[in-house]
Design a protein around this nucleic acid. Sequence first.
RNA 1: GGACUUGUAGCUCAGUUGGUUAGAGCGUUGCAUUGACAUUGCAAAGGUCAGAGGUUCGAAUCCUCUCAAGUCCACCA
Length: 753
Amino acid sequence: MEKTYNAQAFETRIYKLWENANAFTPSSEKDAKPFTIIMPPPNANDPLHIGHAMFLTVEDIFIRYHRMKGDATLWLPGADHAGIETQFVFEKKLKKEGKSRFDFDRHTLFQMIWTYVQENKDIAVNQMKAIGASADWSRFCFTLDPKIVTLVLQNFMRLHEKGLIYRDLRLINYCTKCGTGYSELEAKHEERIDPFIYIRYGPFTIGTVRPETKFRDTALAVHAHDPRYKDHIGKTYEIQGLLGPIRMTVISDPDVDPAFGTGIMKVTPAHDPHDFELGKRYKLPITPIIDFSGRMDFSWYINDPSFSTKLKKYQERAKQYHGMPVAKARALIIEHLKEDGLLEKIDTSYKHTVATCYRCGNVLEPLPLPQFFLKVSPLTKKVIHHIKEKKVRIHGPGYDKILLHWLKNLKDWNISRQIVWGIRIPAWYSVRDNPTMRVTFLTKEDALISGEIKDLLQTYSLNEIRTGLQTLSAPVSASYVVSDTSPGEDYLQETDTFDTWFSSGQWPFITLQSLGINDYERFYPTQIMETAYDILIFWVMRMLMLGIELTGTVPFSDVYLHGLVRDEKGQKMSKSKGNVINPMDVIEKYGADALRMALVMSTTAGKDSNTGEDKIRGMRNFTNKIWNAARYIAMQSQQPTANNQLQKKGDKIFQKHVNAIIKTMTKQLDALRPGLAAETVYQEFWYYFCDVAIEEHKKGTISFPALLNGFKTFLKLLHPFVPFVTEGIWQELKDKNESLLITASWPKIANNT
RNA sequence: GGACUUGUAGCUCAGUUGGUUAGAGCGUUGCAUUGACAUUGCAAAGGUCAGAGGUUCGAAUCCUCUCAAGUCCACCA
């Protein structure tokens, strides 16, 4: 044996040894208790980062422990198509090549992303193997596998049959840069200081940060008890605006805060969530003035028959605004307000929060768009019940409360996304029944071919429309049929795809179901869901909601949330800061075992940990310590059992101590405390086994067989944490009748009487 | 504005039904090298467990308040 442990020389070989022995497939023994972890599927386009290494390590520890305990242990790996994320990355790549998504039709774009993702998926799997993940690769699932897609569609249909799906016009958080809407979870609120503008508005003064939307105001609202405005309620005024006079009625609503601004607000239902609610309440029209590319839309004014009768000034202004980006238009409109003497004052220190795109940082535009929604309250009620019944336990301080808070306040889930990369919503609109439906071809060549379906049908055959179809906009009143196959010749399918979390929210059971009824019946519900706390709401909550609704049971009994891995100064790792630890570099330098130990040792559920190279180096030293203990053992010649009173006594004390360690570690692992268990085994191996037991043996007070036995026990206890070095040593020291450490049995407390 | 979490050695953190002298990694200081290991061993320094009060025979641990740090949530035009 070499003097120091060389991880590189072992790891690949050892992993092959396990793979060749089929060690990762669950035992088929009938009375073996099933133990299942569904791996959080990494984004298929992502190379592995330290966060992946974290969950792979923690989960692999649980998996290896249960496998050694003799459970039928399944760790099911997979990959997520990660709709928006992936399409965004791909579009960036296109941009570098001087292209855009609008250069391709729907089908071609999907195929291109598919190919791109396929290449990256294989890299990710190899990296997961390098970390030592003992997952069952033969059961690998991808969210866009045909079988998975079929199940997602069927489950959508089931939810629809249960009356939990509806289509509605709502103001959605729309990112005009990314070209898609989001759910409430994906909006990031940021504090901003924006000018607050006071505008002379007929007999009133109104305050707003968004003067550009005022052209489509539908009413003025005040609080009923406000003495300043009480007498105006119900009255209609002619108000001089930038495009001529408009008529506006004053309504009263208890939600209007008299203390804010001037106490009177303009109502713009199409562009403000609060106003949208008011609009609904008082049946005000929803009249947009901003389009989905984030530009001003004055076509309603320009195309109005009375346009030619307007003042020249107004005509020019409208033409000028039309098509202008929102921010630019706002500045210009402020100028025009000044010009017309309508600007009262500007408060430049107004602080408020705006919703921004969690991904690109662009300010989200609330825009009216018909979307599919999932009613959540019947689902969240069931989840709350299951949590209270302790059918599912959350590990990580405070996160049970956060989850419950969300469950109690959750709004209906917008599951439509206006992207191509995903599972297309199986809703079909009849061309015959919905003649006002529009299709838009977004390829440059076809950009002009848009219009009412009726006209298109005359020019093109239906098949041609389907192939090139980019987006379809059906009015909110359009009738639709939910079906996983086309209901008939004259139907067009919804072009929106599902929110990625809608499919990954079903992951624990659709994976197993896609693998066959046997797997589903044997391994569902699963035991542990292990993931980072930052996707508790996005993912874990959704899995609980959909799992309980669609399978009648909690998809997992324990949720273990690990913290985020930060650098040694506690800063978030990011490429721009240059403090990123690449797991593959670490493995090359120090070995996978050192990385694993560094990630898990002394960490607790739900708390961030700071990991620097010093810690990893320290853990590399630990693997070397194990190696050298093995060298010492290997150097001893076989000696008979304890042959004197001193050794008998020494062996007994040694055995007793080892038993205590087995007991402690078993308890810690059962309690889902891998960080503590790692610390225990580290301490006990180094400061007890090496510093005490081996020294005792040198003095002759512990017999060799007892020492060897104890060492083998330690290898087993160490194995879930540092699988490579322990298996490597095991192969050197094992008896003839022993085979692999990975499948050896977890130590039981030996009777030493 | 709400909610949650944290404050333990120079640094990074463990310490879960409250129980002798509060632990580890890294760092620091001294000594040790032909017999497993210098990626080491032995020894040492370093803590009023944020502060104050309370419960208790006993508190880092439970309760209250104060101070500090962080995270999440929230439509105020």
